[in-house]
């Protein structure tokens, strides 16, 4: 069975890519009996033998009925795929060894309800699609290395109604996503900061402007406690100060450590994530590329892209 599958895969391999959106028609849909279908054919043969041995016309009639149903199921299975429109929306970026999530839209423009549609990439999803509905399906594609990741062809299959036949279509979309390096699990501190007051582990704290009150957390300095609210019986609050005391944080490839470039990139990636999570402003230096300090998701993406394509 496995060899057959491999052979079929080879047979249907294509050397050109599909457009972004594909309407399934007779040119795109293949259909073959399943194992169950072959067993059903055997059943029909057995019933024919019984009818012949007993020369029983009603048994003949039943065998012919089953044979006809078997034959007509081909049309119905085909019909359950025909006319569907499948399109790739986008593939979400991921870190190495995470799965790239691919958003696929399955559109049923007809008034026929579709059942049991199976989409397969690395994982398999089965959905029902009511008439004139469009559905978003997310599939995963595993990643192994950094850089552009091209997804395998997507298979859309259906065995409705009886599971005797399987209709399927292989879709060769160009689905690519950026794969960022895997963030290092080692919790290394940020590189030395250019500013003089920066202390490791307490970077977010400056002491210039009162920013607001927040809940007391263990480890907050006694000096920061807002005693007035405590006196009012509202519990412990700490005063929060924010300031632009931090001079720039530079995340620099040359300051990373590790055995090889991959490890160093992974360390850099980790820093990027940490810095973004803490809402810091940071600059980014990679060999031959310098990004001025900034923050926000756009900047973060830019840095990650640089890492991925390094």
């Amino acid at each position: 069975m496995k060899q057959l599958k491999l052979f079929l895969k080879k047979l249907f391999k294509r050397h050109y890519l599909d457009k972004k959106s594909v309407t399934l028609n007779h040119k795109r849909i293949y259909i073959l009996p399943t194992q169950r279908g072959l067993n059903f054919a055997l059943l029909v043969a057995l019933l024919l033998v019984i009818s012949f041995v007993y020369n029983n016309n009603l048994a003949y009639l039943l065998s012919f009925l089953l044979a006809s149903v078997f034959f007509i199921t081909i049309l119905h299975t085909f019909k359950s795929l025909a006319g569907l429109i499948i399109s790739v929306s986008k593939a979400h970026s991921a870190y190495v060894s995470e799965d790239v999530v691919v958003d696929i839209y399955l559109d049923n423009p007809s008034i026929l309800e579709r059942f049991n549609l199976t989409l397969n990439l690395n994982n398999t999803k089965t959905i029902d699609l009511p008439a004139t509905q469009k559905r978003l399906v997310t599939l995963n594609s595993p990643t192994l290395k950094r850089g552009w990741h091209y997804c395998e062809p997507i298979t859309l299959a259906c065995q409705y109604p009886f599971g005797l036949f399987k209709a399927w279509s292989v879709l060769h979309f160009e689905v690519k996503a950026l794969v960022y390096p895997k963030p290092s699990t080692e919790n290394n501190p940020f590189p030395e900061l250019a500013g003089e007051q920066a202390q490791q582990g307490n970077i977010t704290k400056g002491h210039s402007d009162f920013y607001g009150l927040r809940d007391y957390q263990e480890g907050d300095s006694i000096r920061d406690i807002h005693w007035k609210s405590m006196a009012k019986g509202q519990g412990l609050h700490s005063k929060d100060y924010r300031g632009d005391l931090l001079t720039e944080l530079w995340l620099d490839y040359s300051q990373t450590f590790g055995y090889d470039s991959e490890q160093r990139l992974s360390q850099l990636c980790r820093w990027l994530i940490d810095a973004d999570n803490s809402g810091l402003q940071y600059g980014f230096i990679l060999v031959g590329l310098t990004l001025q300090p900034s923050s926000g998701s756009c900047h973060f993406k830019k840095c990650l892209t640089a890492l991925a394509l390094f």
């Binding site: 004139t132 509905q133 978003l136």
Partner: peptide
């Protein structure tokens, strides 16, 4: 019914989209 389809499509999108 097409209108209800539209509302359902909106709800489904909000549930399934990233």
């Amino acid at each position: 019914s097409p209108l209800l389809d539209y509302i359902q499509a909106i709800i489904n999108y909000s549930r399934e989209s990233a």
